[in-house]
Nucleic acid binder design. Structure first.
Lengths: 233, 233
DNA sequence: GGATAACTTCGGTGCGCGCCGAACAATCAG
DNA sequence: CTGATTGTTCGGCGCGCACCGAAGTTATCC
């Protein structure tokens, strides 16, 4: 009816992108993919509680809109978040959304929740009590000042074996804060947060628990971090 | 049908929030509000090309979801973005969305677009060629290094009369980059970007053109910035 | 080759929601 | 008080889309 004379500065495109995340099932997919790994379509369908055919359509949409990328291997369709900016979009959205009811339905859920609260990954950096603890210890020791890496902080990271130069190279924000949904406190993200996390996995200071996002410190990791940050982990 | 046994880590809440931005009209409202000022419901209805009753419903939704806050004055309903985080969400979303067709429909639109491209505000900081120019000049003079404010940069800001301490105080990221949709290059945002922008308005170095987001340098502003950054504005 | 498993395609169903216009309410100006 | 302006409420319309299940396709295993 009404001719298309709206002042539209890309509103339609933006609405389309937001629409990708505006569905409960697709949102659940993206939150699951925040662990930074690739999931198969079937896994996501089960996780989201929908039929496989429904999951297929949702994944088509998310890939079309550039939030996910896919990789076909044999009869499997693997998808993951397209890049760290897509992950940040999901993070920001979920951080700002009202928290779900904090009632653990069962003992099984409760222990699972507790493991996630202790330590987990948030796309590509450490989160949960572990991530927040590291961040606060770094701040206490003046390795971080506000959200700026100090000179001593830089030296400390190099000493740990973190590739600081590579992290600096990208156009990605160097240091960024990310709000934690269990701790309600900010923790270290951005290129440096990712580099530190990668180093922790490479050196086997942290390891995954099962197949989810939950992680735990290894004995070595606990020793290294506690000594290095003069803080009990 | 199916009982509610989904593993839902707040997916419904997140989808609900994304849904607020997943409508062309509501998206247009939020993009308009990126100028950081308060608009009346009627202005937004006209801007979005919808009936007033439709705008009312949309504003109800956006306020409910916490993206907008409202203030009633007499028969007017003023709304603005709730806070800088809401603004950042809109920014990120619009920056990632595919760009709209770059065809200016009329001469009127073309000149309007050109003014926006030269200089404008992006919620609370400077954007367009002006914002990008300032940021790149600061980088050239080593006032910014990557996305870190250097010691000389800090001194430079204090010298200009920017309240750096106040900007540091908040929990908000100190320095942040924001991707420009005309220049396709990052420019200075975050608490420091906002403080610098505020100073520019207070000192009348920049002024608004008409009622939109477009701004221009005043003669004084041009002189001050050109001298201070050794760069022709 | 046949059986199984992962995914896709297609038809069909039903609900959600964006939209309008008309009537109503509240405010302001003369 | 009267008329104009701004915003809200309500009824109704129609499209879009999330969902499922059944049948079809492609790959893997024995």
């Amino acid at each position: 009816m009404r001719p298309a004379i709206r002042s539209d500065d890309g509103a339609a495109e933006m609405a389309r992108l937001a629409g990708s995340l505006a569905d409960r099932t697709r949102a659940a997919f993206c939150l699951a993919l925040l662990d930074g790994r690739a999931w198969t379509a079937g896994e996501l369908a089960r996780h989201g509680g929908v039929a496989r055919s429904t999951a297929t359509a949702h994944l088509d949409r998310l890939v079309d809109d550039g939030l996910l990328v896919e990789e076909r291997q044999g009869r499997h369709r693997y998808v993951r978040l397209a890049d760290h900016e897509a992950a940040e979009l999901v993070e920001h959205l979920s951080a700002r959304a009202p928290q779900p009811v904090p009632v653990p339905a069962s003992l099984r859920d409760a222990t699972k929740h507790a493991a996630l609260a202790r330590g987990r990954t948030c796309y590509d950096h450490l989160a949960g009590a572990l991530g927040v603890g590291v961040t606060e210890a770094m701040t206490d020791r003046r390795l971080l000042d506000g959200w700026t890496l100090t000179a001593t902080g830089r030296a400390w990271l190099v000493d740990l074996g973190v590739d600081v130069e590579a992290a600096r190279a990208g156009r990605r924000p160097f240091v960024r804060s990310c709000l934690d949904w269990t701790e309600r406190r900010p923790h270290l993200a951005g290129a440096i947060g990712a580099a530190l996390c990668r180093r922790c996995f490479d050196a086997q200071w942290v390891e995954r628990i099962g197949s989810g996002r939950a992680v735990r410190l290894t004995p070595t990791g606990r020793r290294v971090l506690s000594a290095s940050l003069q803080h009990e982990f």
